[in-house]
Computed example of a mutant assay.
Amino acid sequence: MSTPIRTLAALALTTALAFHPALAEQLDRLVVHKSPTCGCCGKWIDHMEANGFAVTPIDVADLGRIKREHDIWPAYRSCHTAVGEQTGYIFEGHVPARIVARFLADPPADAKGLSVPAMPVGSPGMEVGDKFMPYEVLLLQKDGGSRVYARIDSPDDQY
């Protein structure tokens, strides 16, 4: 994202936060653990920042260690792991910012976070022209289980 666009996005967010203090409480700073060579992770970070999230990327050599530390089972894994700095909630993979914000506004009691397993084509950060593959956002539960939190059937469902 270019500097003028980032500046406009930051100005829009600042204005929104001034008039909607509850929004500021919902947006948790995300620490994103990622591979230094993964381009789609950087695109997902851009998506999150463009939608009002503060993001701190951390390049790590052993992402498996991060995923094990946060008890993210292999079936729920993707290319990067974001952890809410204030809340500790996990956002694994290419979860749309809109869905993260909705989750943070009213997290289920048994939740530890959200996951988009694998890397669905067309999800935020995984755009390939006009190609799109429907996918599910899973609610990761504290007991290790999961359930469908949201279904993304079209690109418009993400934004």
Rank of each mutant, 00 (worst) to 15 (best):
M1V: 14
S2Q: 13
T3Q: 13
I5W: 09
T7K: 14
T7C: 06
T7E: 13
L8H: 07
L8N: 10
A10Q: 14
L11T: 09
L11S: 14
L13S: 10
T14M: 11
A16E: 09
A18T: 06
A22N: 11
A24Q: 13
Q26F: 04
D28T: 08
D28Y: 05
K34L: 04
S35H: 05
P36Y: 10
P36K: 10
C38G: 05
G39Y: 02
C41A: 13
G42R: 15
K43A: 15
W44Y: 02
W44T: 04
I45H: 00
E49Y: 04
A50H: 12
G52I: 08
G52W: 09
G52F: 07
F53S: 07
F53T: 08
F53W: 07
A54Y: 00
I58N: 09
D59H: 01
D59K: 00
D62M: 03
L63E: 03
R65F: 07
I66H: 01
I66A: 04
K67T: 12
K67Q: 15
E69M: 08
I72N: 01
W73G: 14
R77A: 14
R77S: 10
A82T: 04
V83D: 01
E85R: 15
Y89L: 02
I90Q: 05
G93Q: 01
V95P: 03
P96Y: 01
V100D: 06
F103G: 00
F103E: 01
A105G: 14
P108S: 09
A109G: 05
D110Q: 14
K112P: 00
K112Y: 01
G113S: 01
L114G: 04
S115D: 04
S115M: 05
A118S: 10
P120C: 10
P120Q: 10
V121D: 08
P124A: 07
E127L: 03
G129R: 07
D130F: 10
D130K: 13
K131S: 11
M133P: 03
P134E: 04
P134Q: 04
E136T: 15
V137Q: 02
L139R: 03
L140W: 02
Q141M: 13
D143W: 03
G144T: 07
G145E: 08
R147Y: 00
Y149P: 05
A150Y: 07
I152L: 00
D153H: 05
S154H: 15
S154E: 13
S154P: 13
P155L: 12
P155F: 11
D156E: 15
Q158N: 06
Q158V: 07
